[in-house]
Amino acid sequence: MKEQLETIRQEATARIKEAENLKELQDIKVTYLGKKGSLTSVLRGMGKLSKEERPVVGEIANKVREAITNEIDEKTETLEKKALEEKLRNEAIDVTLPGRPVQVGGPHLLTGIIEEIEDLFIGMGYEVREGPEVETDYFNFEALNLPKGHPARDMHDTFYITNNLLLRTHTSPVQARTMQQYGGMQPVKMICPGKVYRRDTDDATHSHQFTQIEGLYVDANVRMSDLKGTLNTFAKSMFGEDREIRLRPSFFPFTEPSVEMDISCKVCKGDGCSVCKHSGWIEILGGGMVHPNVLEMAGYDSEKYTGFAFGMGPERIAMLKYGIDDIRHFYTNDKRFLTQYHHAKGGAL
């Protein structure tokens, strides 16, 4: 019987070694270790053995069983690994094929710029105010020190609806409305973005509709140097720490003194290039100290309150920032234009 067991073991080992797949291995397991398997039938014949022989043969038989089981398990593991490798090999794909595109939306470039400016001033304690696009002559002009017949009205080619109603030519009426609402009683610190309209023929540099964003700060003892400091803070955050600002005298009917602000040209760093028309400076915004007539008309005592205001054009900022050559792009909404500005925020002009 010992010989018989030894033969079974050798035979099984040989077959396990040759087995090529899990199915074969399963068959081997059944053949030797199953209920009707050869090892089982050998063990069944143990009853015929003597008392002394039985434990010895039993031990041998158990060892054989153990050995076969181990060999099968080992082989199973090997084959499984091989099968998995085979499967993975078959699953290989061409990773250079393009992925499934994701629909990505995004803000309009002007929204990106406006929100960036909003956030900057919100950080400095400003609130955001909005106002109607159809304005009265009073708020668009008169309340801003532009009485009827004032020559400076020529600066604004206005779309009138009636003698008294018009499409606002600037966002400044929101200043007048806000001050009037506050009734001369409390400080004002606000910015107002929005659409404005001018009676222009659309071309590369003119648009009958465009956007503006304006700021207003009214309080006791506001100084012109505060305007300069505020604009400097704004310019450095918006366009970069290395940029310088320069104020030049200008004229707006609603401010006195009035300023125009330039920032140093990023491209030539002040040496003069085509971007800055060889001046080293790029005009960014206009502003000034709120005209006493504007304060008085809104109910503020101009002896007690002073203030500053400023306004700028997001289109101009965007055009300078990205080198856009035609203002109409903002309103044509060509997909090839819009998709360039998925992430319109950040970056310096």
Partner: peptide, 15 residues
């Protein structure tokens, strides 16, 4: 002109 920032009472800005 010097660069200064307004000295009035500060307020929280926001939307």
């Amino acid at each position: 002109l010097p660069f200064t920032l307004p000295e009035g009472a500060s307020q929280a800005g926001g939307l």
